[in-house]
Every structure is written in structure tokens, then in C-alpha cells.
Design a protein around this nucleic acid. Structure first.
Lengths: 102, 102
DNA sequence: ATTTCATATGAATTTGGAATCATATGTTAT
DNA sequence: ATAACATATGATTCCAAATTCATATGAAAT
């Protein structure tokens, strides 16, 4: 259930839904409903994904009334994403990592 | 067939076999048989994995007689692995990314 | 030309994880 | 206590990706 390996961690970044959620949370902490709406991942699926992301310390949760507020774990995922993004921009001109389409 | 997205790339690092292969190649370029022996991934499976890794520019190949020599693509995967490793050591004391067991 | 070694390939099968579905739990308001 | 809202959970279904298996290709040696 906990995140034990190198591969366990990376599998979170190898999943489209998870990336969407992470992207969504870059603009700030949000509750499940809002995440679900923004990402267009249905509620139940969103909860399942969120659980995994928390288990791997990618996200934090805190309760606020009947809601649960999820946020990026700045100590872990943010620096890694930053490093990877930098690398993508600096080193990969003919890039095999496509920029996220917006 | 080619590696197009963020998630495609990370899926390479989310796979135990691929990590084994990458680890194996950290000590230098090798042919398929040697990789297969070191990683204990059978020949056919090894070839399949290698193909994917090459498609995502994680590895390079070159022919040498009847062998094919695979090597890490220093321009791409090496810097990322280095950055991630550094991050693991510096930032994750209570670490959710287990050090590779040897 | 035939054999042997090295690797690749395609199809079939297996499997692990994700989406889905139905329902449960928990919280606030009335 | 009941209703309405927010989220989680477990089971099932589904699917894509990985293994496996059998075989093909290709290169060197005899």
C-alpha cells in the first residue's frame, strides 16, 4: 500500500490522470470535487488516484469540514518536476518529451 | 511507436525490468546477451524492453559484427537520473524512494 | 552451403493496474 | 432524525502492456 520503490514512485508520473491532477494542483490546494471537475476525471476515479498519490507522498491531505483539501507536497514532487522540466527545456531540443499541450 | 509524451517517458522508469537494464548499463555499454545475463531477464524479453528504451531515446544502439551494443544515452537519461538521485539524497530523509538494494 | 551464435520479431497469453459501478462513511444543515 | 452534500471504498470489469513462446533474420565461422 505504501510507496516502496523507485518504480512505484515513477508509476505515478507515468499515468495521464495523475499528471492531470498534479497539473491541476499547481495552481493551489483543492478539494476532490474541484479536482474532479477541472481534470474531468470522475469522482470515484479521482479519489482512487488521490489515494495513491498520497501514499507515495506526492500529495498532502487535510480535512476541512466535510471536504478534503489536497495539495502538492512541495518537499518531494515539486523539486523533481522542476528539475525534470528544466532538463527538458535545456537538454532536449529535438525533444522526445512533448510539451504539455494547453 | 516513438516516445511522444511525458507519461510515455516516465513509464520507462516505472518498470522494474527497464530499471534493471539501466542499472546494468551504468557500468558501461553491453550487448544483449550480457544484459540479459546480468539482469536475469530472458533474451526475448530483453530485446523487447531494449527496443522501447531506444524508442524513447533512453538508450543508444550500435552494431558490432553480429552483436548489438547498447549504451545509456548520456544526453537524456543520465542527467535526469542524476538529478533525481541527488534529490533523493538531499531532500528525502524519511525516504519514500527506497535506495536500490545491492 | 551449412552450422552456430546473436538478436529481433510477431502472436498468444498473462497480468497488474485503472476505470467503472454500486454503495458505504462521514459531515453539516434543517 | 433526516436529508443533502462530499468523499471513500470494495468489487467487478476492462484494457494495455509485459512475458512468454516459437520462429525468423542476420552475421561470422567452418
Amino acid at each position: 500500500m505504501k510507496c516502496h520503490s523507485y518504480t512505484d514512485f515513477f508509476s505515478n508520473l507515468a499515468n495521464e490522470s495523475n499528471i492531470k491532477i498534479i497539473e491541476s494542483l499547481k495552481t493551489g490546494p483543492k478539494n476532490v470535487t474541484k479536482i474532479s471537475n477541472e481534470t474531468e476525471i470522475e469522482q470515484s476515479a479521482t479519489s482512487h488516484r488521490l489515494k495513491k498519490l498520497v501514499n507515495c507522498n506526492v500529495l498532502n491531505v487535510e480535512r476541512k469540514g466535510k471536504e478534503r483539501i489536497y495539495s502538492l507536497n512541495k518537499e518531494t514532487i515539486t523539486p523533481i518536476l522542476k528539475l525534470v522540466d528544466e532538463h527538458v527545456h535545456k537538454k532536449c531540443k529535438t525533444c522526445w518529451i512533448k510539451e504539455k499541450e494547453n
